[in-house]
């Protein structure tokens, strides 16, 4: 009865436990700026070179290589091939000394990264692309006013946190001061269970998918690369986590315009550059209702696109090269030279 689901799940578990993880982040790149753990990686365009650089900002709680997972399923590779000078903000892995870094400090790191990318590209401004939490930070930086940002794209980035789905429910009544001590790191062991609980049944069913993929070596590599990324979470600075959960999820501070960074209130309506807001219909980490309202708040120079995919599938699934990468390329060509 080896074809029955229970046996296949067991085999999937065995494969996941024993199979070596494939290499990731293989697109050639050059580090053009570094500050502590942070590195800005440059991916030289291979097609007809365009002038305006694109700066990609991933989430802080995962590895940046999700945007360069494997050849053919790599956003950086696709953008570089389309001629865009592409820069990836790799946040790295925070160490104990980074525990006190808050949102203002992180936005300052981002501001400097964009500046160095523009200098390296010899361009006055850049297109800013933020994914998940990175999208929220990108929107915040643009709202606070950055002369270097000429256009903004957010992908699955929460801005209306009260609509943040199950994760919002998890953290609404949390005592952030106790749960996330300001000077310490929030370890992976604390955050991972919360993310696993977002889709408890999916944690079982994925083994079935792994077993199915094991019949096709190329597909298995793809699945294992994604699993590797899911396994390699990074800790979060306590001060950042505490502020993000308190001001974002508990007070809905971006939507209510109460979130102050460095003494300044973040007003999303102040974003004055062309903006593309992308949300995913099957996203249970950032539901559409949490991401899409950015377009409404920014106004007529923003537009919203909803894709029929999930939070991770949108960049590394089949929908990435088929729909999402061309969508980005088209927007970049529309808004900048």
């Amino acid at each position: 009865m080896e074809s029955l689901p229970a046996s296949r799940i067991r085999r999937g578990m065995q494969i996941l436990a024993t199979a070596p993880r494939p290499p990731v982040g293989l697109t050639p790149n050059e580090v053009i700026h570094q500050q502590g753990r942070l590195a800005v990686r440059y991916y030289a365009p291979t097609g007809a070179r365009r002038k305006t650089p694109v700066v990609l900002v991933p989430s802080l709680i995962n590895r940046a290589y999700i945007l360069d997972l494997e050849p053919g399923r790599s956003l950086v590779q696709a953008l570089a091939a389309a001629g865009h000078p592409t820069y990836l903000v790799d946040w790295g892995v925070p160490q104990e000394e980074n525990g006190g870094e808050d949102v203002a400090f992180t936005l300052n790191l981002l501001r400097r990264s964009i500046d160095r990318a523009c200098r390296h590209a010899g361009a006055p401004g850049a297109i800013l692309f933020g994914y998940c939490m990175g999208g929220t930070l990108a929107a915040m930086l643009t709202a606070l006013g950055s002369a270097r940002v000429v256009a903004l794209v957010t992908l699955a980035a929460p801005v209306r946190f009260s609509e943040g789905g199950r994760f919002a429910s998890f953290v609404t009544s949390l005592d952030t001061t106790t749960a996330f001590p300001a000077e310490a790191l929030v370890p992976v062991s604390t955050m991972k269970p919360a993310f696993q609980m977002l889709d408890p049944v999916g944690n079982v069913s994925k083994h079935l998918a792994i077993e199915e993929a094991s019949h096709d070596p190329a597909r298995l590599v793809r699945v294992l690369a994604r699993e590797r990324w899911l396994e390699e979470n990074v800790p979060l600075p306590g001060a950042f986590a505490s502020e993000f959960v308190r001001e974002g999820y508990q007070r809905d501070g971006l939507w209510n315009e109460t979130w102050r960074v460095g003494g300044e209130t973040v007003r999303l309506g102040a974003i004055g550059v062309p903006t593309l807001v992308v949300s995913c219909a099957r996203d249970f980490i950032t539901p559409v209702a949490a991401a899409a309202p950015l377009a409404e708040r920014v106004g007529p120079h923003a537009r919203h696109v909803e894709l029929d995919t999930g939070h991770i599938g949108v960049v590394v699934g089949a929908e990435g090269p088929r729909r999402f990468y061309p969508l980005l390329d088209g927007f970049f060509r529309e808004v900048a030279s």
Partner: peptide, 22 residues
């Protein structure tokens, strides 16, 4: 996952983990 009992316990667990780590 939406019950107050579960959410409360989850919060307490997070706080306890942070305390134990400290």
């Amino acid at each position: 996952l939406e019950t107050p009992a579960f959410l409360g316990a989850m919060g307490q667990n997070l706080e306890a983990m942070a305390g134990a780590r400290g």
